[in-house]
Structures are given as C-alpha cells and as structure tokens.
C-alpha cells in the first residue's frame, strides 16, 4: 500500500504570523506607490532631480544600509536563539539590533540637520518633498521597530520575538528598495 504525502496548504507554508505578512505587504504597497510616484514626477524634471540628489550624502546612506542590514541579522539570530531556549542570548541580540536601529536614526538625524542648515526644506524642490516624506515615514517605522524590539525583548515568547523580528525585517526590506531609488538612481 502506497502512502500519499500531503503537501501543506500555501497559507500553512507561510512562516510566522499571517497578520504580520498582511502588514508587510501593506507597507510594501505604500512605500512602493511612493517610490513609483517619485520616479513618475522625476520624468518631468530629471536634471532638477539629479541636481537636488547631489545634496544627499550617498556614502552616509550606504553606511546606514550596512547598519540596518546588520541589525536585521541580529534580529534573525535572536529568533533562532529564542527557538533554542537561549533567552539571555535572545535579549542581547535584540538589544544589539535596537542599538543599531538607534545608530541608523542618529545618522538620519544628522542628515536632516545638514539639510536644514543648508536651507533645504520640504518645499525646496519636489525631489525633497518625496525625500522627506519617504525617508521620514521610514524613519518613523525604524523608531517604532526599536520600541517593538524592546517590548519583545521584555515579553520574549518565541512568537513575540518572531513577530517583532518580522516587523524589523520589513523595515529593512523597505530601506533596500528606498535607498537606491532616492539616493543612487540619477
């Protein structure tokens, strides 16, 4: 008699919490629409957008990408540590991820201060309207993520840690799409 191997329903294959995936997709749609709108507006003034982009510090933004990606690694390692019942290691890794999130925000704050000192604001050019809107909204997510990582480090059930880390990876994912479009494409 042959045994039939049942493949799980696709929804059952999805790792982690379904609602977190709903949130991840929603956020990707919001940021995705914002980035597409940015490039659509750029069509009318590519030279103006390139000139405005020259005021950004690409190397600092690249450094921030390294910071966020490394923070994501620590969050992923925290999930693994919690599954292995290593609670102290989990909390240390989550703390490390949070600290790197704060480093990201400090670098971002310095970038905004630099722009403000140069007299560059939201209404300086449409490029900067999108720049402040998209990077500011993302920075708000980073701040929320740092708070969430702190909370799941405190109430560290395996499910909480997994959901908190998934939120953090979503922030990471948005940045790796936002960074090249805003800072690098000329």
């Amino acid at each position: 008699m042959s045994e039939t191997v049942e493949t799980p329903h696709p929804l059952e294959q999805l790792p982690g919490d379904l609602m977190m995936w709903v949130l991840i997709v929603s956020e990707l749609l919001v940021f995705g629409a914002g980035l597409a709108a940015f490039l659509a507006v750029r069509i009318g003034d590519p030279a103006g957008f390139a000139a405005a982009q020259d005021h950004l510090h690409r190397a600092a933004a690249g450094l921030n990408t390294v910071v966020l990606v490394t923070s994501g690694l620590l969050a992923a390692l925290a999930v693994r540590a919690r599954e292995a019942e290593q609670r102290l290691r989990t909390r240390c890794l989550l703390a490390g991820a949070s600290v790197l999130g704060l480093v990201f925000l400090i670098i971002k704050g310095m970038e905004y201060a630099d722009k403000a000192a140069a007299g560059i604001g939201v209404e300086t050019h449409p490029f900067f309207t999108f720049y402040y809107l998209l990077t500011g909204f993302h920075a708000a997510h980073v701040l929320a993520g740092v708070i969430i990582l702190g909370l799941v480090g405190w109430k560290d059930s395996p499910r909480s840690v997994e959901v908190g880390a998934a939120f953090w990876h979503m922030v990471d994912l948005v940045w790796v799409l936002l960074f090249p479009v805003i800072y690098l494409l000329r």
Binding site: P10, Q13, P15, G16, L73, H169, M170, D172, L184
Partner: peptide, 24 residues
C-alpha cells in the same frame, strides 16, 4: 542598481523572513 535592489529584497525575504522554507 535596480537589479541589485531586487536581489537584496529577495535575500531579505528568503533568509531573514524565512521564505526559503516556503517556495510557493
């Protein structure tokens, strides 16, 4: 640059968010 962004997003989804275990 856009191709590299797509690759980075795929890696985060596969490895950090665990979709490597969910091929669909």
């Amino acid at each position: 640059i856009l191709l590299l962004a797509w690759l980075k997003a795929r890696i985060i989804l596969s490895e950090y968010l665990g979709l490597a275990a969910a091929p669909f």
